[in-house]
Amino acid sequence: MNKIFHFKKFSILQAPSVFKVGTDSVLLGCLTNINSAQTILDIGTGTGLLSLMCAQRNSKATITALESEKEAFLLAQKNISNSDFSSRITVFNLELQKFSPLLHFDYIICNPPYFKSTQPHHTKHPIARQQLKLDYRTLLLKSKILLNNKGIMGCIFPHYDEEVIFSFAESIHLYPQKIVRISGIKNGKINRTIVEFSNIDPIKKEERYFYVEKSPRVWSAEYKELTKDFYL
């Protein structure tokens, strides 16, 4: 059964085979620095959530969304067309590897696949969560090509992948500008990292810690403040 997740200014129709609204995407959509971007690329848009969050946060941006899976692409199209932001968002049913636009982007945003196809539990997850069509190396290499000189690429991934991702990014001269390490509960184990990369090696990068809940099933004040423009 399809379920609708209602935000303040748009709604997300969900489907069983498409990755549903989750805290990771909401955090990424809220914590990234998209305010001055004129052109944004959303890689693997899924339901269209990140594109819609970017459109709400930045009223001047035009957004290009890519989605390789047909069912997810159609769902994203529907969610976007039903919103007040449809005139600024264009969705393509296309793999990142085949995307060759004429322009470069001010900002690239992505909640990439986490699970390697060799992991035993990968069959339990939608293809959007599996590194069958898109892995970290491909994402970073292609993002570097698609960013303009001052562009920024923001993504979220499991904290345990941080070292390998940072190492590969450095090898292709993508440098972290901002790092947010996230735990589900205050003083708990860090389980996610949000990072913003650019082609410019900063003198000093911004690093911070963020937690979602202050106690089990009780949102932290910081999380409520961060998401107040989105959650009902």
Rank of each mutant, 00 (worst) to 15 (best):
I194H: 09
D201Y: 14
L147H: 08
K3A: 06
K9L: 07
G151V: 06
I156C: 10
H121N: 14
L28S: 03
F92M: 01
G29F: 03
H6W: 04
D24R: 04
V164D: 06
L31Y: 02
K186L: 09
A76C: 01
L75K: 02
S100I: 11
F85Q: 02
S68I: 12
N79H: 00
I165S: 02
T90D: 02
I179G: 08
F92C: 02
P112S: 06
I89Y: 00
N35T: 13
V180C: 12
I40Q: 08
G154R: 11
E206F: 14
I63E: 10
L13A: 07
T39Q: 08
K60N: 15
F73V: 02
G29L: 04
P158I: 02
A221L: 15
K144N: 11
K142E: 12
A15G: 09
S51M: 10
L146I: 09
F197D: 11
V218F: 13
K9N: 11
R88T: 03
I179N: 07
K133D: 06
S81V: 09
F157P: 06
A61I: 08
L27D: 04
M153R: 09
L174Y: 01
G22D: 06
K20E: 09
K142P: 06
T32V: 12
N82P: 01
F210Q: 08
L75V: 01
N191P: 15
S215R: 12
Q177T: 09
I194A: 12
S167D: 03
K224P: 11
D135T: 00
H104Q: 14
L146G: 07
L13W: 05
C110G: 14
K205V: 09
L75H: 03
I89N: 00
Q14A: 01
G151A: 06
L134T: 00
P158G: 07
I200C: 12
E170W: 03
W219R: 13
N2D: 10
F197M: 10
Y223R: 07
L13D: 07
I145E: 15
T23L: 05
S59I: 15
P202M: 05
E225Q: 14
K98S: 07
L140T: 04
E69F: 05
E213S: 13
L41I: 10
Y136S: 02
F157K: 03
D24G: 03
I109Q: 13
A76H: 00
T23Q: 05
N111Y: 10
I40D: 11
Q97W: 08
V91L: 00
D106T: 14
N187E: 15
Y136W: 05
P216C: 06
V21L: 01
I156L: 08
K3T: 08
G46D: 11
T227D: 07
A61H: 09
K186E: 11
R181I: 13
E67G: 04
L49N: 03
A221K: 15
N2F: 06
S86Q: 05
D106V: 12
C155K: 13
G22V: 01
A128V: 04
K189W: 10
G48A: 04
S59A: 15
Q177A: 08
L31D: 02
F10R: 00
F210S: 10
G184C: 07
D201P: 12
G188T: 07
L31I: 02
L49R: 04
T32G: 13
L27K: 00
I108W: 11
A37Y: 04
T45A: 05
K20S: 10
W219V: 13
H121W: 15
